[in-house]
Computed example of a mutant assay.
Amino acid sequence: MNSTENPSRTVQDDFKDAFLKNFIVFFLGLAINCINGIFVFIFSRSTFFYMESRYILYIHLVINDMIMLSISVALHVIVYAAPLVNVSVCCILLVVGTMTTRNTPMSLAGMAVERYIAICKPLRHSQICTVRRTYMLILLIWCVTFIPGLADIIILFLTRPITIFTSKILCYSLAIFNTSYHLNKAIVEYALFLSFVWITLIYTYLRVFFAAKTATTDAVSAKKAQNTILLHGVQLLFCMMSYITPVLDLILVPLFPNDRTKILFSTFLLTNILPRLLTPLIYGIRDQKFVAYIKKYFSMCTVKVKPVKT
């Protein structure tokens, strides 16, 4: 998980630069979480959303992004405020962070499959995409993404002395999970995860695309589902950028050594912070029911705070 910048940059940043970077990261993180929090609040206030699998999957993605963003911001601030962190605490933060990172593409795949069933198998949608099965899918996603994190801890336990868990270290993935076993596992893991998700998105997009051409399918709904899956692909591309951040840093930093800290900070924002804005923009704001409920609750709040004329 690339949720923090390279900690070595803290040596080069003066107080003004460090404060400005942390302020920007904290402000953006807080703003994005507030936006996502609105959708969580709207979801919690209506029983209608509880009965629809698509909204359950969406709000799971929103909450997952909020957790991931909170950990990313926390680790970024910790790098500057208290660089040395207990290894046990760091491992917990990194494992939860990597789980939420992997959850995003898996959740996108699940949401694409749900849209495919709704358009291509509308008569069976209510039978297949039940609320119970939706929560089972979410549980399965968390279990599947927890296994690689647990494997990292087990490898660390087998290859390092037990005293490492009581020591302190700079808290980022490559500082702890840096053995050849970890690196090989990460390559295989990312290849399997991303291949599965891309195959799922491409398959569901093509099926919905061809379904939109048939006379028996609601063309408007099919087109919306087609656009949604396509936007999921765009969102996945941004998610994949976090995997290539180290490569970008290795390429750009030698070319512009004087701008090293700016490059590292920019790639961190572009690949870890700003993509979290896509979830409410792609799915929430485009959904008419969510927008209607948001307008309803905001209008109610406006009425409540409106001063009484005397």
Rank of each mutant, 00 (worst) to 15 (best):
residue 109 A to H: 01
residue 295 K to E: 14
residue 227 N to C: 07
residue 89 V to K: 15
residue 306 K to F: 08
residue 88 S to V: 13
residue 221 S to W: 06
residue 45 R to W: 01
residue 30 L to M: 12
residue 200 T to R: 09
residue 163 T to M: 03
residue 220 V to R: 14
residue 221 S to V: 12
residue 185 K to Y: 05
residue 232 H to K: 08
residue 106 M to L: 12
residue 55 Y to W: 09
residue 59 I to N: 00
residue 282 I to M: 08
residue 218 D to C: 11
residue 172 Y to K: 05
residue 185 K to H: 11
residue 299 S to N: 12
residue 140 L to E: 04
residue 47 T to Y: 12
residue 231 L to R: 10
residue 207 R to C: 07
residue 12 Q to G: 04
residue 273 I to K: 06
residue 219 A to E: 05
residue 81 A to L: 05
residue 108 L to P: 00
residue 256 F to S: 14
residue 156 L to S: 11
residue 252 L to S: 10
residue 89 V to H: 10
residue 176 I to S: 09
residue 72 S to Y: 07
residue 190 Y to Q: 14
residue 142 W to D: 01
residue 72 S to E: 04
residue 115 R to L: 13
residue 117 I to A: 08
residue 185 K to N: 09
residue 151 A to N: 06
residue 158 L to R: 15
residue 227 N to K: 14
residue 246 P to Q: 10
residue 82 A to E: 08
residue 144 V to H: 03
residue 79 V to F: 11
residue 181 Y to L: 06
residue 257 P to L: 12
residue 301 C to Q: 11
residue 74 A to H: 06
residue 16 K to V: 15
residue 150 L to I: 08
residue 49 F to W: 12
residue 252 L to W: 07
residue 91 C to S: 10
residue 85 V to S: 01
residue 219 A to R: 13
residue 124 R to L: 13
residue 260 R to T: 15
residue 231 L to S: 07
residue 166 T to Q: 03
residue 288 Q to T: 13
residue 148 P to L: 06
residue 80 Y to D: 09
residue 277 L to K: 04
residue 124 R to D: 07
residue 136 M to L: 15
residue 170 L to V: 08
residue 237 L to M: 11
residue 264 L to R: 05
residue 76 H to I: 01
residue 227 N to L: 09
residue 309 K to Y: 10
residue 33 N to D: 13
residue 186 A to M: 08
residue 179 T to Q: 09
residue 153 I to Q: 04
residue 142 W to I: 03
residue 157 F to R: 10
residue 193 F to M: 08
residue 25 V to G: 03
residue 191 A to W: 09
residue 221 S to I: 07
residue 81 A to K: 09
residue 298 F to V: 03
residue 307 P to Y: 00
residue 119 I to R: 03
residue 188 V to C: 08
residue 162 I to Q: 09
